[in-house]
Each structure stands twice: as C-alpha cells, then as structure tokens.
Design a protein around this nucleic acid. Structure first.
Lengths: 211, 211
DNA sequence: CCAGAAAACCGACCAGTGGATGCTTTCTCT
DNA sequence: AGAGAAAGCATCCACTGGTCGGTTTTCTGG
C-alpha cells in the first residue's frame, strides 16, 4: 500500500508542475512521449468502450503494451483516469474575461462535445466520494474549491458592474452554478433531448438584476 | 448473458407493483422476508464499507448467506443496488403539498442524514451513464423525468399563486432545481463544511418574485 | 565512447470480483 | 404424501487492479 512508505516529497504530484502533474512523467524522452500517448489513447478507449470497457488491460492493448506498463506511469487506474480527465481539460484553456455564467456554459459545451467526457467526469466524481479514494478525492475537492472561488470573484465583479442582482450571496451562487452545470450535464447525458444550454440560460435570467 | 432468453413478461419489473418492483420478490414467505433483510443490511454495509466494500460477497457475508443467494433475488449487483436505493427512498414518503423548493430541500436533508446514501446515489447515477447499463439507466431516466414533471407542475402552480416570479420557464427551472440539488450534495460530501441548505435557499431567493 | 545507473517494460502471479450453472434442500399447495 | 417450485449452496469462469522480479533500452558523466 502507499500508506506505509509515503516517502518525503510525494513525487506523484509536485514534480514538473508547469506542464503535467499526475503520475510519473518519464525522465527519458521516450517516457514523456509514451505518457502523452497513453493520455491521448485512453480517452478514445473510454469514449469507444465506456467506463467498464476502459480497463487497464484494454487501454494497454490499444497501445500495444502490457497493462503493467501503464502502472509504471501511474500509481493506479484511478490516478490514470484523473490524469486523462485533467489532460482533456487542459486542451481547452479558459477565457480569462468571460462571464461567470458564460464560462460555465462554455465548459459544459466542451464537455458534451467530447464523447465520453461527461461519463468520465461523473465516474471520477463518484470514485472521489469513496472513503479510500486516493487521488480523485484530493483532485476534485481542490477543483471544486478553486472553481467556487473563481466564480464567486467573477460574480462579485458583475454585481459591482450591475450585471448581476445584488441581493444574493456570491459564494452560495457560485456553488449553485457549478452544481447546476454538473447536474444538468448528467441529465442531458441520460436524455440528450434536454436543452442543456437553455436551462443554464434560465439560471442567467434569474440572476439578472430587476429592471 | 440475459440477452439470449429475455423471456416474455420480464418478471423483474412488473410483478407486485404495489409494494416492491426491482428483482424477484420471493413467492414463499421466507423469500419475501429475506428480500427485506437483504435490502436493509445492504444499505448498512454500503454505509460502513463504502461502494467498493459493498461487493456481493461482502453483503452476503453480513447476511450469512452465499453471494449466489443474492443473485437469486436480483439479476445483478447493479439491480440490487438500485433496489437498495429505491428502498431507502420509500422510507420517506413525500409530502404532497410541499413547495417545489422545500420538497427538494427535504429530500437533500434526508439524503445527507442517511450515511452512504449520497455515495450510493452518485455511484448509481454514474453506472447509469454506462452504455450497457441495464437497470440503472432505465430507473434514473424515469426518475428524472418524473421528478422534472412533478416539480414543473408545482412551479406552475406557485407562479399562478404569485409565489414564484413569472418570467421563467417552469420546465427549465425544474431541471435546474434537480441538477442544483444533486450537484450540491456531491460538493457537500466532498466538503461537509459547505452550507448545503443555505445554497439551496439562495436559489429560492432568486426564484422569489420581484417586490 | 563506453560503463553503469536509471527508466521502460514484460510475464507471471495474486486475491478478489460479478456472474453462470447444476445440484440439493426446503417450502407450500393440492 | 407427493409434485413442483423456491431457496440456497459449492463450484467454476473470465476478468479486474495491483505487485514483483527480471530483462532490455535509454541516457549521462567521466
């Protein structure tokens, strides 16, 4: 277990923080290339064969390596999947000057456009709730906290600018926005006929200041 | 596979619809008792040992039976878990004359008070997204549809009564409310310091008619 | 340039999983 | 009592994530 000898300087997270973060990135050039390859192929396998079909052996087969090779780059399947999700998200750099709502709508649009992404996200959130979840829990708590902070700041600004009604707490609304976006994506995946964007838009209407 | 001989009159769903629905309920009295026993113990195991710890063998061990016995009452682990969730929900009969928002707040309160319930719910929703999900998908699509309809009706009434602002689409807001409630419960489970009720309350504030 | 250290990778193995199957035991109804 | 269905078990299966020891490949410092 990674419990007995959690060596000082947990190298799974804090090395080469500028580019990639989860799991060992290779020291040799072949290694870093493989790592990218894994991340890229894994999302495909996930999209094609679903969460259950994306076993370590299945992903490894798609790459022509053994499943042990994957565990050389990532401590666990969980960590691999988190890295895949993280990787998929870094493909879409966030627009810094977007509205709180529009940034969420954009993200939702992106998620629903990449096959398998919402399923991956939901799967990972579910595993992050398990008590013994190692990587996922840490990752998503941090992600939610960061997102809430970011959105709350945006909302405060928009309140000051008169774009958002003033009689609501930005912190609560930030949590609310994220929750609504996540929940709607799930509902949409179960029933794609739902107008995801429009529902989020309705929330925008509720946030607009009274005229 | 249950694919070859999906016999006519799928008895897993349509028999004894008044009380229980998922999986075979016993024809002998001992059988129906066992079924209740399974449902009751399973939720405990889930609460104590988490989603991963709730394997068929683990649950069976807690009952003093073999894991094959469980599969005699339920077609699959997935179906068992759905039945457990359904069972846990039937414990709490819904108040018929509640506000759209208050009914959700109550439900959220209930979910967060029963250990393991939110984790079970999230796990099941995640599995319902998998392509080959048999029972869960059907169950949750139906659940979401029913919930949306019910909430939308409540909202329309409240709009007519002047309790909810009129300039929003009840259907969109219904989906929104469910999504927000679900998403907030997840965030709360990852960080229990979040004021779940207050966040939902903020949504109530947004829905209130302008004064 | 080449020795040697580290990285990359494999094959074999392990305990545990969900599920299928065939058999025995227990129950209930006529 | 006896037929027939339900309840339940032992056993098997393919597969999973993860570990381990060993081999090959890749790089770097002298």
């Amino acid at each position: 277990m990674t419990l007995g000898d959690d060596s000082p300087g947990d190298d799974a997270l804090d090395d080469s923080a500028d580019d990639e973060r989860l799991g060992r990135s290779g020291a040799y050039s072949k290694g870093v290339a493989r790592r990218q390859e894994i991340l890229n192929r894994a999302i495909d396998v996930f999209a094609e064969r679903g969460a259950d079909g994306a076993s370590l052996r299945s992903i490894a087969r798609a790459l022509g390596v053994s499943h042990a090779a994957l565990l050389h780059y990532f401590d666990s399947r969980e960590q691999l999947l988190v890295a895949v999700y993280d990787h998929a998200n870094r493909q879409r750099p966030p627009a810094p000057d977007a509205t709180a709502l529009s940034s969420l709508t954009d993200a939702a649009e992106h998620n629903t456009s990449v096959p398998g992404l919402v399923e991956l996200y939901t799967t990972l959130v579910a595993t992050s709730l398990k008590e013994d979840s190692a990587t996922a829990r840490e990752y998503f708590t941090a992600r939610f906290a960061r997102l809430r902070e970011d959105l709350a700041a945006r909302l405060r600004q928009e309140q000051a600018d008169g774009l958002v009604r003033a009689d609501c707490d930005p912190d609560q609304v930030a949590a609310l926005l994220i929750a609504a976006s996540d929940g709607l994506q799930v509902q949409w995946l179960l029933d794609p006929s739902l107008p995801l964007a429009r529902s989020l838009g309705a929330l925008g209407g509720l946030l607009a200041p009274p005229r």
